[in-house]
């Protein structure tokens, strides 16, 4: 009898400990969630505040009762923000499309065709993954400058249309398509190119979509290369645009308008993320970098 009582008491103690642990875990996780979300909340809040109201708040208010869209109007009229958006869109779409075409062809050669020196070449490709961008950007800058391609879309796009890492991901996916499909297609007299387009790509569509999304994020956020290659505002991407706004936009320190621009720039990727978050997170955990 006393024995069961003892056990009962132990059990209750463990249960209480477990509850306490749960409470602490949830509190800690919520705290980090707050740290992550607060900057987003703050930029939206500030972007909705009237300029006069914002500057008169010594202690910033955590809400606003009179939201205004004047900052957004200002952000799109005082600086060519719409132009920056358009440039980024063109840059992102062209870079992603070209890269996809190039790596699909190369991945197919590595996964399906036989040729002399294939393994050696593939190893060489893989070893290129170790090369940091900082090392090659110096010559690329000189090359593009010498070719007279500064302040052109060609100059912006060309150096980023190959990616060894995405090529590797794609080759791995292609290699998993069973040989029998290829042989069957050969018997039917299907050409390699048609086989690649009609059979392999539909099968490997999930990988292709992942690569496209990751590349879009990368393009939308790219800053260093566009900064080196463009000094004409007509070719600025959003990152350079926001930097330009930070340094000389909107007259004297109009922070609400600046935040409106920040919200506008962040929104497309956040929407993309909300729609594709499972795909994006799976893709990144398979070998994204940054961090």
């Amino acid at each position: 009898m006393t024995d069961t009582n003892e056990y009962g008491r132990e059990g209750a103690k463990i249960r209480v400990l477990g509850t306490v642990r749960k409470v602490f875990t949830y509190a800690g996780l919520s705290l980090w969630g707050l740290v992550v979300l607060f900057p987003f909340y703050w930029m939206i809040l500030t972007s909705l505040k009237n300029y006069g109201a914002y500057t008169s708040e010594y202690v910033p208010r955590f809400f606003t009762l009179s939201p205004t869209i004047e900052n957004y109007l200002k952000a799109f009229s005082a600086v060519p923000l719409a132009k920056y958006f358009l440039n980024t869109l063109v840059f992102t779409l062209a870079t992603t499309a070209l890269m996809l075409l190039i790596i699909i062809l190369a991945a197919f050669a590595f996964a399906r065709l036989d040729f002399k020196g294939k393994d050696l070449l593939f190893t060489l490709f893989l070893s290129l993954m170790m090369i940091p961008n900082e090392l090659v950007i110096i010559t690329n800058f000189q090359t593009v400058t010498l070719l007279g391609l500064r302040n052109t879309f060609t100059g912006l796009i060309l150096p980023s249309v190959t990616s060894v890492f995405y090529l590797y991901l794609l080759r791995e996916a292609f290699a998993q398509v069973p040989d029998s499909l290829y042989l069957a297609a050969k018997v039917d007299g299907t050409s390699d190119f048609k086989y690649l387009w009609k059979v392999i790509l539909p099968i490997c569509q999930p990988t292709v979509v992942t690569i496209v999304i990751l590349k879009i994020i990368e393009c939308w956020n790219s800053y260093v290369w566009p900064r080196l290659i463009t000094d004409n505002q007509a070719y600025f991407l959003v990152s350079n645009g926001i930097q330009e706004i930070r340094e000389n936009g909107f007259g004297r320190e109009n922070i609400p308008a600046m935040m409106a621009a920040v919200v506008a720039i962040s929104l497309p990727l956040i929407i993309l993320f909300l729609v594709f978050h499972k795909k994006i997170m799976a893709g990144v955990s398979r070998g994204g970098t940054k961090g």
Binding site: W42, V262, I270, F273, M281, V284
Partner: peptide
């Protein structure tokens, strides 16, 4: 939900969100 929220900074433009940290 937590996992998705925690991932949000990954997809943001570092230059844009840096400005929010600056004003904070």
């Amino acid at each position: 939900l937590f996992q998705t929220v925690y991932f949000l900074p990954y997809v943001t433009n570092t230059l844009a969100v840096g400005l929010v940290f600056m004003i904070l």
